[in-house]
């Protein structure tokens, strides 16, 4: 998703140190290296994907965020990015806490379970929603903890985490989420992108 990368890239100031948690094939890392002069590291759980990243010369280590974020010292990165993987962790709460410990700022993107298509699936069909962004069946989904943009707002409020910026992505449309349009954006956004700080 190119737009997501654009938004993330805009959040990041030049010459920053960035950690991409769950970096996959390293596409975002490469995008950032191309578009900003940044020092980017990656953490990825899949051996295959780590090998692909290393083959491209990217500084990626094999590991998972729930166990391996521990090794990074406090505030050792300017930005820590978690792109569309928060919902797949056993304990998203602990992961967010660790991200905020390691990074001065944290960028989280979440697929929005509050999108109208998702709501409609459940309401009309009475089945767990299967959409373009959430293509899995309930029995094989890696997504253990789906949440909505509203849920994520509530979570940050409860945890006293500052949301500096929040962006809605709907197809290619990029727009700001504010407290006044939150209910509406929660209905029409496919993806929410947040810049957080403790």
């Amino acid at each position: 998703m190119k737009e997501e990368f654009k938004v993330i890239s805009k959040f990041i100031e030049e010459k920053s140190r960035v950690l991409d948690v769950g970096c996959g094939d390293g596409i975002l890392m490469e995008y950032l290296l191309k578009n900003k002069v940044v020092d980017v590291r990656g953490l990825e759980i899949s051996k295959e994907k780590v090998k692909r990243c290393l083959s491209k010369g990217l500084a990626v280590i094999e590991g998972d965020a729930e166990n391996d974020l521990k090794q990074f010292p406090d505030l050792s990165f300017d930005y820590v990015i978690l792109s569309q993987t928060l919902q797949a962790f056993m304990s998203p709460e602990n992961v967010i806490e660790n991200l905020l410990r390691v990074g001065k700022k944290v960028i989280v993107t979440i697929p929005n379970f509050g999108h109208w298509k998702v709501r409609l699936d459940l309401l009309l069909k009475g089945e767990m929603p299967v959409t373009k962004n959430l293509p899995y069946q309930w029995y094989n989904t890696p997504n253990l903890h789906m949440c909505t943009i509203q849920d994520f707002y509530n979570f940050c409020n409860n945890k006293r985490v500052n949301i500096y910026k929040s962006i809605s992505l709907n197809g290619e449309k990029i727009s700001n989420i504010t407290t006044s349009n939150l209910k509406y954006k929660n209905l029409i956004s496919e993806l929410g992108i947040f810049l957080l700080e403790k």
Partner: peptide, 11 residues
């Protein structure tokens, strides 16, 4: 990683 060195690792 503790000193922010550039490190890649795979098993």
């Amino acid at each position: 990683n503790a000193i922010g060195a550039d490190v890649g690792f795979v098993e």
